[in-house]
Amino acid sequence: MREQALLEKAIGRTGRLVAVEPFGHGSIARFTIDDGEWAGEWFVDTSRQPVAVETGFVVSTSDGVPVARIWKHPLDPRLPALRTAVDPERLARISAAAGSSGRIEARVLAYRPGRRAVVRITQHGVHLFVKVVRPAEAEDLVAIHEACRSVGVPAPEVVHWSPSGVVVVRDAIGTPGPVTAATMPADDVVDAVDALRERLLTVRTRRIARASVATRIDWHLARIGEALPDRAADVRALAPFVIANARRVGPPRVIHGDLHIGQLFFHGSAVSSVIDVDTAGLGDPADDCAAFVGHATASAVRNDVAGRAADAELLQDLADAAEERWLDSAHTRALTALHLLGHGIRAAERSPEAASLLLDRALEVTGLRPRR
């Protein structure tokens, strides 16, 4: 693998591949090194996208053009505030300057290298969530939270933000979606999500949602082919359907951009909070449908492979209810197949079985293989 060779060139260790995400003209690959002086998480960025300040190793052409950047977490060159957000001592000093004291715990909940991170900080039993983004995006992120809240979309309240790329929001209100899905009928969950999607359509914004999976068709097909070389024929069979049907149909509308059950909290039968509206804006409504079905299906597969049959059945019931409601066109099914491939690519390193099952689901959802 090219990224692994670049890491070895920089530090003399190859590491264990954890994940690869498309980025710019290339990708960002995440590796783990378990021991020795280089122990930690390392990232190899082949996007060729510029950065303000270099924070690691740079591999350049003979004429000085960067072709790869290699850095160790948390020194992400595009997220300069990340180093502070994950350092309890630095956070404690900031808190003390604001008149508060006491131990602060910091836990990274999500991290997409080069794009964003979410860190939960806890002090005196109170949770706040620090969203770390590229500095130029912080004010825009505050604006989309406020635009959502102004029309009744229950995004968390912003309590602080900084042009350095930090936005701090309050904890979500309600019962987490995965817990609710275990007790609420799947059709009722989908009803609640539909009500939220209707409310999102009223948000006033010119912001563009996170890029659709349809913008990286070739990347998804190539990566799943690399991850599952023995399934090359199935990937080739899937490609024409996805290529022909994945492009958006109709005008852009306001969407969440990364909609799945883990983003939702419930009070009774209604959504009481929706988190990570960082990805929201004008986009393809079918992407939200596809993301929801893809995530629920992938979660069901992971639980099934791990031997948690009851959890797998609940999540598959949710995926089936959403599929029956929303996947009524070749376009939405093509997008869902791409989301499933994305989950398969991420699963492949740890569980080739799960990756293969997700490719099976992609073939089934597009009608290229009968549903089992």
Rank of each mutant, 00 (worst) to 15 (best):
D317V: 04
G268C: 06
S272N: 13
V293T: 08
D284E: 10
A291Q: 12
S299L: 14
L315T: 00
A270S: 09
L315V: 01
T297V: 12
A298Q: 06
P285E: 09
R308K: 14
V271D: 02
A319M: 14
T279A: 11
D276Q: 05
A286V: 08
V305N: 02
V305I: 07
N303Q: 11
Q316G: 05
D287Q: 13
V301N: 01
A310T: 14
L318F: 07
V274Y: 00
D278H: 07
N303F: 04
L314H: 02
P285K: 06
A312E: 02
A290V: 03
D287L: 09
G307D: 09
C289L: 15
V274F: 02
G281R: 04
Q316Y: 10
C289N: 10
A310S: 14
E313C: 02
A280L: 13
G281A: 15
A312I: 01
G307V: 07
L315H: 04
I275C: 00
A298W: 01
D276I: 02
A280M: 03
F292V: 00
D284V: 12
D278F: 08
A312M: 10
D284Y: 09
V305R: 00
V277T: 15
T297P: 01
A309C: 04
D311R: 04
P285M: 14
D288Q: 07
G268T: 10
L314A: 00
A306P: 06
G268N: 09
V274A: 07
P285V: 11
E313T: 01
D320N: 15
A290C: 14
D317L: 11
S272T: 06
G268S: 13
S272F: 08
G268K: 07
R302C: 11
L314F: 07
A298V: 10
A290W: 04
V271T: 03
G294L: 11
V271S: 06
S299K: 04
P285A: 11
